[in-house]
Design a binder for these strands. Structure first.
Lengths: 350, 350
DNA sequence: CGACTTTGCACAATCGATGTTGCACATGAA
DNA sequence: TTCATGTGCAACATCGATTGTGCAAAGTCG
């Protein structure tokens, strides 16, 4: 810091070291070797910079170099286990590369999403990841216009490589597991069937999961009726209402329940809590996405854990060596049996 | 965009509009009224800028104006309900002000924390919030040197205003609630007492909660013995081990359990799951921090929800009108009875 | 000792936007 | 016609760092 209270610049350091700004700049970066600055001068300059608490003005550097050292990621919401895990991994990898992560949430609003992309472009971010895009086409368009590298995560997009979770196989595996725990009954009435609840049928991830669900049931000889698939959205309240209506129709809980997300599961639980104890003995429940507490409810819950760390890792890989043409990398989720704790990549979250 | 594929600048727009860069700059901001640019020219320039997909280079603007339009927040981890809710609120308020939020996680590492502050200073952020600081003193020092406004959240710091959760009263209320649900027994053996588990005794928040816990017990005529307070850290594994050891010592579960965090609770559950059903009938459990699934376990759990939205709201208020001298604003948490769902400020999360 | 290379650094242009100053022209009053 | 005032805009300096270029002084070789 200068005595005036301003932050010190290379000009201030230059004056103190009795040399020029360009020399100071070189001495403080790795460029001094190629720019033939003497070791003595470098040491002197670095000492003075240290004393003055100097730090590079990244706006100036960024302006000159036409890059910022920032990397962006857009997620639907922060307040969600899946996406906040992504944030954690995204940040860790960014720091490893000496980059500064900027994470923005779109609240699943296409327009907000585009505004965020524009903003990130204004700040000259080096590249961006878009997770759970609402309007991937528009984003690719904007990025192409600004010549900005980008990767889609969790949902494939056009005009850029994508890393997605294998929703189809994840759902198929979960469905098979649930079926295998259900009492087999050839003459099963409606109530003895398995139901899919939650999500938006037109969303990519939900659609793929429904396909997996449908495939396994069809394979097992009992293709799902339309009413077995209740894609009522993500908010807990919706699934709470729907599960209540379903129980009403069936005269009790169905034999199997495939819940499409944690938020939907929250709603389902909101209804379950009103049922008499023992109501769940004949029901097998599975949930796409993992939560340690959900794993410990008093009826067993089979959960699918998406590997957000791997997703991000692969996304960085794709940014580093962009494949030619469209490319979609699928990452396998894993099945977490009831009452098991998963310890994440950062030790024990907390 | 120019035909060369570069991003358009005010120079490009100026050429196309047959005027000068300074005029373009003025026309695109609100400055044109005071700078006597004709309405006609403004319209022309804005049309051309639109056509060219022009957007301001924020690095250039920031360099000139010695500010960036960025605001920073440091949190311990993203992957946590409490802090990710803060992120969500922090971002919402930032956008309302036309600022771009940059959220970084320190992993509770003091050195990382300081590095992040330095980085944010390098990017000329307008101000920062520090949540759950590890070394608030060092941070204040850095900020003062760089003349950077800042506010501490969740943990008071020197040299800047702070907004914290009222851990003392929150813990006292939870403790009282637990006591009132325990069977009163004057000749209670060790097993009939209430235990505090989790957290780090030297952490500010944990220390305050322990004080509240201790105060209520003392008031009730049974001041806690040292062994009733087990501050074994945050990781689930630790509390799992400790609760197992405790049950061993007592020959069963204690009558009351005050769990200091969700991660500790996760560990406690990891042990509970091995106990025979019915073991919990005589035990009253409370947890500091809220989780919807934890609210639905098969034994009732009393939870304390910290109002992260209010905390952030107050933090912005303090940034806007900085009080003279040190200032600490306390925000009351609320008690969430078992089996109740709390819907956050953003509708129904997810 | 002179030509030639190497060393060590300073100078100046540059990135894109902002804001101050000044200049040309128009309008109106004297 | 002449001076004063106002209007509309261009020129230029500036923010702080990077980077291409130039130029002395020191070192090397015949």
């Amino acid at each position: 810091m200068t005595s005036q209270g301003r932050k010190a610049t290379i000009f201030d350091i230059a004056k103190l070291a009795d040399s020029s700004p360009s020399t100071v700049s070189a001495a403080l970066s790795d460029a001094w070797k190629t720019r033939r600055i003497s070791q003595k001068k470098v040491d002197l300059i670095r000492r003075i910079a240290e004393e003055q608490g100097y730090s590079t003005n990244m706006q100036a550097r960024g302006l000159r170099q036409a890059r910022s050292g920032l990397v962006g990621m857009i997620i639907p919401v922060h307040d969600n286990r899946y996406f906040s895990s992504m944030s954690q991994s995204f940040e860790a990898f960014a720091r490893d590369r000496g980059l500064v992560p900027v994470i923005a949430s779109s609240m699943r609003d296409g327009e907000e999403e585009r505004r965020i992309v524009q903003t990130l472009i204004s700040y000259a971010v080096d590249y961006i990841f878009i997770a759970g895009a609402t309007d991937p086409g528009a984003i690719s368009e904007l990025c192409r216009a600004a010549n900005l590298r980008h990767v889609f995560v969790d949902l494939p997009g056009p005009g850029a490589p994508s890393v997605i979770s294998d929703n189809y196989h994840g759902a198929a595996t979960l469905t098979r597991t649930l079926l295998s725990h259900m009492r087999p009954d050839p003459d099963a009435p409606a109530r003895d069937r398995i139901y899919f609840i939650g999500g938006v049928a037109t969303d990519y991830a939900t659609a793929r999961r429904i396909e997996g669900f449908r495939h396994v049931l069809t394979e097992a000889g009992c293709p799902p009726q339309p009413e077995q698939i209740i894609a009522c959205g993500y908010p807990p309240r919706r699934s709470m209402k729907e599960i209540a209506a379903l129980c009403d129709r069936l005269g009790g809980l169905p034999a199997g329940l495939f819940v499409n997300s944690l938020t939907s599961f929250e709603g389902v639980l909101g209804h379950f809590v009103h049922l008499p104890p023992g109501s769940f003995d004949e029901t097998v429940v599975g949930c796409y996405d993992y939560d340690p507490f959900a794993a410990y409810l008093h009826f067993p819950v089979h959960m699918v854990r998406q590997d957000s760390h791997r997703l991000i890792e692969e996304a960085y890989r794709l940014i580093d060596t962009p494949p030619a043409g469209p490319f979609v990398k699928e990452v396998e989720p894993s099945l977490i049996p009831p009452r098991t704790i998963y310890a994440g990549p950062f030790g024990e979250h907390g």
